[in-house]
Simulated assay, not measured.
Amino acid sequence: MTNTEIPTLDGGDKIPAYVVRPDGPPRGAIIVQQEIFGVDAGIRRKAEKWAAEGYLAVAPDTFWRQKPGIELSPYVDDEAQQAMSLMMAHDFDLGMQDLEAVIHWIRSEAGVAKVGLVGFCMGGRIAYMTAARTDVDASVGYYGVMIDQMLDEKQAISHPLMLHIPTADHFVDAAAQMAIHQGLDNHPQVTLWDYEGLDHGFAAEIGDRRNEAGAELADKRTADFFALHIG
Rank of each mutant, 00 (worst) to 15 (best):
T2K: 13
N3P: 03
N3I: 10
T4E: 12
I6C: 00
P7L: 02
T8G: 00
L9Y: 00
D10E: 03
D10L: 02
D13E: 01
A17W: 03
P25S: 09
P25E: 10
R27V: 02
I31E: 09
V32R: 08
E35G: 05
V39P: 10
V39N: 08
A41P: 07
A41Y: 06
R44K: 15
R44T: 12
K46N: 13
E53H: 11
E53V: 04
E53P: 03
G54Q: 00
Y55P: 01
A57T: 01
D61P: 02
R65Y: 09
Q66I: 10
Q66V: 06
P68R: 05
P74H: 04
V76R: 12
A80N: 14
Q81P: 06
Q82F: 02
M84V: 07
L86T: 04
M87L: 12
D98F: 01
L99R: 12
L99V: 09
E100H: 10
V102K: 01
H104N: 09
H104M: 03
W105D: 01
A110F: 08
K114L: 08
F120C: 12
G124W: 11
G124H: 10
G124L: 11
I126F: 15
Y128L: 08
M129E: 15
A132I: 09
T134A: 06
D135Q: 14
D137I: 07
D137T: 05
Y142G: 05
G144R: 07
V145Y: 03
V145E: 03
Q155K: 09
A156V: 00
H159P: 02
L161A: 02
M162Q: 15
T167F: 05
A168S: 15
H170K: 13
F171E: 04
F171V: 03
D173F: 08
A174Y: 01
A175K: 14
A176K: 12
Q177N: 04
A179N: 11
I180S: 08
I180E: 08
I180C: 06
H181G: 05
L184C: 01
D185G: 00
H187R: 03
Q189R: 14
D194P: 10
E196F: 13
G197A: 07
D199M: 12
H200S: 11
A204P: 00
E205H: 09
I206Q: 12
E212P: 10
A213M: 09
K220I: 07
K220E: 15
K220T: 14
T222V: 05
T222N: 07
L228F: 13
I230Q: 07
G231S: 03
